[in-house]
Amino acid sequence: MVFNEKITNPAELRHVQGRIELYWIYTSGEAGDVFFKKLRDEGKFTASKCRKCGHVFFPPRIYCEFDFSETEYMEISGEGCVLAFSVISYDSDGNRLEKPEIYALIGMDGTDGKIIHLLGEIEPENIETGMKVVPVLKPKDQREGKITDILYFKPVS
């Protein structure tokens, strides 16, 4: 016997609402700080290259995750090509978005790395994998040193 008695009237079953009322402030970290300041102030993209194996990381990091050697920063164009994309009709609460968002996995030129970001200025039916895209940044005075300083990537016209 697992329980000796159980509540039979469903109205007597209780549920208590709970909300996590915390918020978080995340530093970009050492490599992130270098990247986002460069993006904010100069509109330029930074990657990092492993001093031992030569793997070029994007997003940049201070260490090579494969051999744990140090890396050095290098400037890249910020352009890339679409490796995969998806069209999302709902937000994370499950509500329909007024306009679907296009997410893309973008291989970054001059690196072994990738970025996941939005695509803009294009309709889903016109997207092809392998398509070349370039970043569209916020105007300099509105940039804050965050990933959202990149508004989206757009196809090369």
Partner: peptide, 18 residues
């Protein structure tokens, strides 16, 4: 939280879709 979470408002299933 720095590189991916702030991108867009879409449902996180976008990653599986990609």
């Amino acid at each position: 939280p720095v590189w991916l979470r702030p991108v867009g408002r879409g449902h996180p299933f976008y990653l599986a879709a990609l």
